[in-house]
């Protein structure tokens, strides 16, 4: 019933074990899965989707949800080349996107906490609104990454800073963000307050913790990371069409967070778990591509997550039973 820290840790270990087994099974089914190129692709997707999974896990931690991530990724990806065309520098464009992301996060937080609207509805509306804005901003045309941005593409996404190892830069970037998130959540007062708010909002309020501010903060973090991910996805893909770029990415992000042990009831999220969950989602995508063909990926990921959720329920009961015996 009560997940002590050690329970959360053993869960993360279990996820790690599952990841290793999954990798070996995929490798056995299809030897090409373990090739350098294939593993590099897996880690690239894990990095890209991991960024938004980390973001959404903050919202999930405080008992909320953000369905607008995919649309915000699309808007940010379209906006970046558009802003460059307007003559803005890389830094300026990034600042504009970051600023807009913060504003949108504040808006979500305000609507959810002050107007007491449901996060599901607020961000569902966001999903449509930002998708619409992305189409308008792109003028119905595909927005292309200018050729002079290749250095940034190498630096942030595709480069392999670890020499011979097939680890793309974007995966390391995601790991760095995860490390910051882990330090924030585990070692800082604000992070612990955020976690406490997720565990028991009423008790947090009775302690004098400003739970409203923290829930707003979680939406801001989520939108900010979605904005960043939009640029990263664009750098990877080189072009973005406002009507479709980033479609349903929020669901892949939520999938990663859930596979990593986040409970949609709030209060439970381990950063390490979210990283592992994102890698798992990327592995399944890749393995399905090899074994069954790309068209099967949604089907398989759905079944995979369902199995994971059922296993998690069983694990929780097992932990509870073990505690009773102890």
């Amino acid at each position: 019933m009560f997940k002590s820290l050690s329970a959360q840790n053993s869960k993360t270990l279990l996820i790690l074990l599952l990841l290793v087994v999954l990798t070996l099974v995929c490798g056995a089914l299809e030897p090409r899965f373990l090739s350098r190129d294939s593993l590099g692709a897996v880690l690239k997707y894990a990095g890209l989707f991991g960024v938004i999974a980390l973001g959404v896990s903050f919202v999930i931690l405080t008992g909320g949800i953000d369905l607008s991530i995919g649309s915000w990724v699309g808007l940010s990806a379209v906006l970046y080349p558009v802003l460059l065309k307007q003559g803005l520098g890389v830094g300026e464009a990034a600042l504009v996107i970051a600023g807009a992301s913060v504003l949108v996060g504040l808006l979500h937080g305000f609507l959810v906490t002050k107007l007491n609207l449901q996060a599901f509805l607020v961000t569902l509306c966001g999903l449509f609104i930002y998708r619409g804005l992305a189409r308008v901003a792109g003028g119905g045309r595909e927005q292309i990454l200018p050729a002079d941005q290749e250095w940034l593409r190498d630096l942030l996404v595709l480069g392999r800073p670890l020499g011979g190892l097939p680890v793309p830069a974007v995966f390391l970037l995601m790991l760095a963000l995860a490390a910051v998130a882990a330090v924030f959540l585990n070692l800082t007062v604000t992070g612990r307050h955020l976690l406490a708010t997720g565990r028991n909002e009423q008790a947090a309020r009775f302690c004098g913790i400003g739970t409203t501010r923290l829930r707003v903060l979680s939406f801001v973090i989520c939108s900010l990371l979605a904005g960043l991910a939009g640029v990263l996805f664009l750098l990877d893909g080189r072009s973005a069409l406002g009507s479709s770029f980033g479609n349903s990415y929020e669901l892949w992000a939520i999938a990663g967070a859930v596979l990593g042990g986040c409970s949609l009831r709030g209060g439970q999220c381990a950063v390490a778990g979210v990283v592992l969950g994102s890698v798992m989602v990327a592995e399944v995508r890749q393995a399905v591509f090899f074994v069954a063909g790309d068209e099967w990926k949604e089907f398989v990921i759905g079944v995979f997550i369902l199995a994971g959720v059922i296993a998690d329920e069983g694990f929780s009961r097992w932990m509870a039973a073990r505690r009773v015996r102890a």
Partner: peptide, 12 residues
């Protein structure tokens, strides 16, 4: 509901 965080350590 209001006084304690059941899943958090006593210290916290």
């Amino acid at each position: 509901e209001q006084g304690i965080f059941l899943e958090l350590p006593v210290r916290e």
